[in-house]
Structure formats: structure tokens, C-alpha cells
């Protein structure tokens, strides 16, 4: 049984014929064609698929698309539409926070959610905020540095 659904992603409306089992990640990547969010573990563990739904971070792989028809969804591609998002993207570049890059979209979204609720997080708060995102290059230090830099610019 499929159903017609309308999703609001990064301010654009997407119409699709979906199955009940389709995850938000499938919709974002395969229907909307937004390939920034990554399919890693598909179990909610790695964090590479993290997106914002209604301003809160969720795992797109554990969220059913049919449950999101009335929500404002932001993926990593949507970060360029807000000041803090752009700040984070630049800071990741400046700090050399990206190695293979697979985890970075999720890192950015968790960091974006953190700075939204806490504009000036401490080092520990940044680490906790990113604790659900795994980087298999183990490049955590520069990722944390980048979030710190963006937070400092936030305060300035």
C-alpha cells in the first residue's frame, strides 16, 4: 500500500508516492535527491543521517517519512540558508575538520542543533552534543575545534 505524501525539506515542497516503511532518509536521498545525509549503519548508531525535524535533531534512518508530513525538515544542504549553519560550514573548513567526510553532514547537523539550544557551549557540552556522531577517521579533535570556533563567532 503506497500513499501520497508532501514533505517540506529546506523550504521546498516535495511530493512523493511512498510506502509506510520508507524512512525519511530514503525520501531525502532518493526522492528529493539530497545526497548530503548519509546511509551509514541504518540503526541510529553512527549519526551520519542526522537531520532536523521541527528544529530538533533526529536520525533520518529511524524516522518514517509518513510521520513527517507536517514538519519542517532541514538537511545539511539547508544549512546554507542560515547564518549559524554557514558559520559552522566555514569553521569546519578553516579547522581542517574533514578527513574522509562521510560523518561530516551528521556532525554539522548535531552541531547546528547544539548551537540552537546553547549558543555558547563549553568544551564538554560540545563533546556531549556530538557524542552521537561517529567519525571512523577518528578526527574528533578538529571537529570539536570547528564547533568551538563557530560558537565563538556566534558570541562575537
Amino acid at each position: 500500500m503506497t500513499m501520497q505524501c508532501v514533505l517540506l525539506i529546506n523550504g521546498s515542497t516535495y511530493r512523493a508516492e511512498i510506502a509506510a516503511e520508507d524512512t525519511l532518509l530514503t525520501l531525502v536521498r532518493d526522492v528529493a535527491g539530497l545526497k548530503g545525509s548519509k546511509l551509514g549503519c541504518n540503526q541510529g548508531v553512527c549519526g551520519a543521517c542526522t537531520v532536523l525535524v521541527g528544529g530538533w535533531p533526529v536520525r533520518a534512518c529511524l524516522t518514517l517519512a509518513a510521520d513527517c508530513t507536517d514538519a519542517d525538515i532541514v538537511t545539511v544542504e539547508g544549512l546554507e540558508r542560515d547564518t549559524i549553519g554557514v558559520r559552522l560550514q566555514r569553521a569546519f573548513g578553516e579547522c581542517g575538520a574533514v578527513q574522509c567526510g562521510f560523518c561530516i553532514p551528521g556532525m554539522l547537523m548535531s552541531a547546528r542543533a547544539l548551537l540552537d539550544k546553547n549558543p555558547a557551549p563549553s568544551l564538554d557540552q560540545i563533546r556531549i552534543g556530538l557524542s552521537g556522531n561517529l567519525c571512523r577517521c577518528s578526527g574528533y579533535r578538529k571537529i570539536v575545534d570547528a564547533v568551538r570556533l563557530a560558537a565563538t563567532e556566534n558570541a562575537a
Binding site: G44, G47, R59, T63, S131
Partner: peptide, 9 residues
């Protein structure tokens, strides 16, 4: 439980 994102779900 888990991490901030999963606690939000």
C-alpha cells in the same frame, strides 16, 4: 540513554 539525538527520539 544513548546520545542527545536518540534521547530526542
Amino acid at each position: 540513554i544513548a546520545n542527545p539525538v536518540v534521547r530526542n527520539m
